[in-house]
Amino acid sequence: MSAVTEATQTASPSRPGSLTAAIGLAVLTAVAAIVNGVIIITGGLDLVKEIGSELIAAETGVGEAEVAEVIDFDNPMVDALFAEAASTYETRAYLVLGAGVLLALFGLLMRKAGMAMRVLVTVTAALTILFAAVIGLDAGTTVMIGLAWVAVLGAVVTIVTTWLPANGRYAKTLR
């Protein structure tokens, strides 16, 4: 056996571009989901009041400044309504944040394209789609909705690229 054939047999195969793309997409999608969750959590009650004022202004045709003057935010009933809405937004934010963190973790662990990691990336990407779509379809700021749809589209493409045949062949050659 020649030195050239020995070297080619012992050298590990190069990582396919589709796997590198899947890892990159998983991480970028996760970042969009994480940033969206953090924005919603840090916005809290003030963010919900802003969104509520925008919705009321859109429904009534009155300017946002006038709506803020009319709504008595010191009223306990109004405060309770906005606190309930803030709790709902916060729950959604934690769900998308958690899915994003897991997607980033499993995406980075998918470097050898093992079946278990590809399944975990698929499951967490599907959860990211679900939680981000809920945020994207509800009332929110432009940034919240935009990041939600970036996460949804990124997760869909991540799932597709994760299961490309080259990734499976690469995983088989590493076994």
Rank of each mutant, 00 (worst) to 15 (best):
M1F: 11
S2A: 09
V4I: 13
T8P: 00
T8D: 11
T10I: 14
T10W: 12
A11S: 15
A11K: 11
S14F: 02
R15S: 15
R15W: 03
R15P: 07
P16W: 04
P16V: 06
S18V: 03
S18L: 06
S18F: 01
L19S: 07
T20Q: 11
A21T: 15
A21L: 15
L25S: 04
A26M: 13
L28G: 13
L28C: 10
L28W: 02
T29L: 07
A30M: 11
V31A: 15
V31D: 10
A33Q: 06
A33M: 06
V35S: 10
N36M: 12
G37V: 02
G37D: 08
G37H: 03
V38M: 12
I39K: 09
I41F: 09
T42Q: 15
G43Y: 08
G44F: 09
L45P: 00
D46P: 07
D46N: 15
L47T: 03
L47I: 06
K49Q: 14
E50M: 07
G52K: 00
S53F: 00
E54T: 11
E54H: 10
E54Q: 14
I56G: 05
A57S: 14
E59N: 12
T60R: 08
G61W: 11
V62N: 04
V62W: 05
E64F: 00
A65M: 03
E66A: 15
V67K: 10
A68S: 07
E69A: 06
V70H: 12
V70E: 11
D72A: 05
D72I: 00
F73C: 02
D74L: 00
M77Q: 13
A80F: 04
F82C: 09
E84G: 03
A86N: 10
A86M: 07
S87I: 01
E90Y: 01
R92K: 04
L95F: 10
L95D: 06
V96N: 07
A99L: 10
A99P: 09
G100S: 11
L103N: 11
L103A: 10
L108M: 12
L109I: 14
M115F: 12
M117N: 15
R118T: 04
R118W: 04
L120P: 12
V121Y: 10
V121F: 10
T122G: 13
T122C: 10
V123A: 15
V123N: 13
T124R: 07
A126Q: 14
L127A: 15
T128V: 08
T128I: 05
I129C: 03
I129A: 02
F131C: 01
V134N: 02
L137S: 01
A139W: 00
V143G: 08
M144T: 14
G146K: 01
G146L: 05
V152I: 05
G154Q: 01
G154A: 04
V157W: 07
V157K: 00
I159D: 05
I159R: 06
V160N: 02
V160Q: 04
T162R: 09
T162E: 14
W163K: 04
L164M: 14
P165K: 00
N167T: 09
G168T: 13
Y170Q: 05
Y170V: 05
Y170N: 12
A171Y: 11
K172I: 02
T173G: 03
R175V: 12
R175A: 15
R175W: 04
